[in-house]
Write a protein that binds this DNA or RNA. Structure first.
Lengths: 342, 342
DNA sequence: CTGAAAGCGCTAACAG
DNA sequence: CTGTTAGCGCTTTCAG
């Protein structure tokens, strides 16, 4: 039976009760299997520590070991389902590794990234997992400078930087854009609209390239009138759907699912339906896609894999400070009923 | 221009360069407006600290001040949009207050709550914001014991415990269940189905009571055949929708929006539509509700308010260790087109 | 096998 | 106004 915690118990308290030195207590507690201390003393110390409900003062430990067992997680927006899932998996995994995570949101504004990374560093994190804000890819001088001067290991997840050597895990967005478009082509579509976040996010930039690639490969000329630009949100899809429809496209590939939700909403308002009047493909494969009327065919990214690889790479870096690792994950297409064969 | 950080700079490094003692440096850095130190030395110290890109070692600070400026956030599931929004707002607010937050997910399993709270305490957080797992309300002995013995302040948000004095902020779920049902009654419905998480969550327990209350107040007899039980997920709604429909209800009030999504999906599969064939009301007012075919009328809870009150109360407790504060927030109904007047 | 002692970097009396 | 000094609680040589 544990005693109620009413006073802070320290190593020295245990040491006194066990008639040993603090060094002995420290050794036993840090490695209960040690052979440096006699069986009897070990048992005694362990028992007392347990009875007193001892737990170490992490500040004192950190001060001497120069490690906090805490890592920083830089997230654009935890409200975004993609990132909340990512954060959840990372947190669970880290907890198993005895690492706590401090989360900070950059709110998808790349102006915030540097300050947040710095403040995490000041907090004394041992390392960081960083998902950069969308636009850093297009204006990356400052962030590269910050990261280059960072004296703790870090891994870039999902969003990366070009010409920058660092630990990275990300998806092959080019291939994702490609398979989404290819699927429409394989279903007979040639007039394929595209909602692009090309100028907004690094991921959008590559997805858009994948769209182009699929068309070119199929010998379908790229029609700029079929391509509209916006950001990754519902409003973009909603606002641009009619314009694409008026261009006479038979299908729309979207930069992400939110775009597709917006398109669908607009089409319904216009008295049109998916896929009877227009085929639709999304990107991200949100859990919610199942609950749209016909389900939304969408490019799926294995977030669990992304999270685990990210943590693995960081753990490696934490231990060996080795060479930089770069991993690219392949997306797949999850097919539902939002595409009609024509 | 800052120098590149290549060596850890400490107070003593600044002290030496400025020809003052570490105490002076510490005083200046902690309170640049102090009058205890001469203007000249202050300027000198500040300049050197800045040039050297000094930042304090938080472990050392924590060790002596016995504060970490870190708080724990216990969340059932960050993937749940309600909680990701809550966490985001709390994080932003805390960052302004110079507090970092360590997030841990209990995965909605109340067996995890005690360990997570303990491990956060061991981490040395100054306080906690705690959203308990669903079922703690029905089996609360252990968690009450843990919380009673916690030697840092905490505030319970959204999910609370009965007969337990503590800082609390939560919504009036009884009233929420009431207004949802009342709205259906006001639209002429008398055969109102209800999907309840009464036995699963404290919030479900009260929402269910609100449903009953609205019926009784209107003199409509409670028909147990119209009430089905499950948990707060899509599957529950999907699985139980047909059963309710077969009972001949003209409307269904749901314990939460996910239930409503499931109902809607099932109804579509059955060739029925909302609200033509059946009216539907949800709870939580997820952002997504706007994108269901007709939109989902739903009980709205002001998460921003919940978050701010939670942080405020914790900050108070951190400073004055005062009396316990309990705040109940009122939900409102957001009306869309999922209810038909009959 | 065990203990003494140094010191991690900082804050907060207390002197002067 | 400024410096000296004593710890905060822990880990880690280094002796013995």
């Amino acid at each position: 039976m544990n005693l109620v915690i009413d006073v802070k118990v320290r190593l020295i308290d245990i040491a006194k009760l066990a008639n040993v030195s603090v060094a002995t207590v420290s050794i036993v507690l840090n490695d209960p299997d040690t052979t440096r201390i006699s069986k009897e003393k070990k048992a005694e110390v362990l028992k007392i520590a347990n009875d007193l409900n001892y737990f170490p003062n992490t500040a004192a430990q950190s001060l001497v070991t120069n490690k906090s067992n805490t890592i920083g997680l830089v997230i654009p927006d935890i409200e975004n389902p993609f990132f909340s899932t990512l954060a959840k998996i990372i947190e669970q995994r880290c907890r198993k590794e005895k690492l706590a995570i401090i989360i900070m949101n950059t709110l998808e504004d790349y102006h915030n990234d540097p300050d947040i990374i710095r403040s995490l560093r000041r907090r004394g994190v041992d390392g960081m997992i960083v998902a950069l804000s969308s636009e850093t890819y297009f204006d990356d001088k400052k962030i590269k400078n910050i990261l280059n001067n960072l004296d703790v290991p870090f891994v870039l997840v999902d969003r990366t930087l070009r010409d920058f050597e660092a630990n990275k895990v990300y998806f092959n967005n080019l291939h994702g854009g490609y398979i989404a478009t290819k699927y429409l082509i394989d279903n007979g579509h040639t007039k394929i609209g595209y909602i692009s976040a090309q100028n907004h996010a690094m991921t959008g930039y590559f997805r858009h390239k994948g769209y182009i690639q699929a068309l070119e490969e199929a010998g379908i000329p790229v029609n700029e009138d079929y391509i509209v630009h916006g950001v990754y949100d519902v409003k973009t899809g909603y606002d641009l759907a009619e314009q694409l429809y008026n261009q006479g496209v038979s299908a729309i590939a979207c930069g992400n699912d939110l775009n597709a939700f917006g398109v669908q909403k607009k089409l319904v308002e216009m008295g049109l339906s998916v896929p009877e009047d227009i085929s639709l493909v999304g990107y991200d494969n949100l859990e919610f896609n199942d609950f749209l009327q016909k389900g939304l065919t969408s490019v799926d990214q294995d977030i669990t894999e992304l999270a685990h690889q990210g943590v693995n790479i960081l753990l490696e870096a934490l231990h060996h400070q080795d060479k930089k690792v770069e991993v690219m994950l392949e997306p797949t297409l999850t097919i539902r009923n939002s595409v009609k064969k024509i």
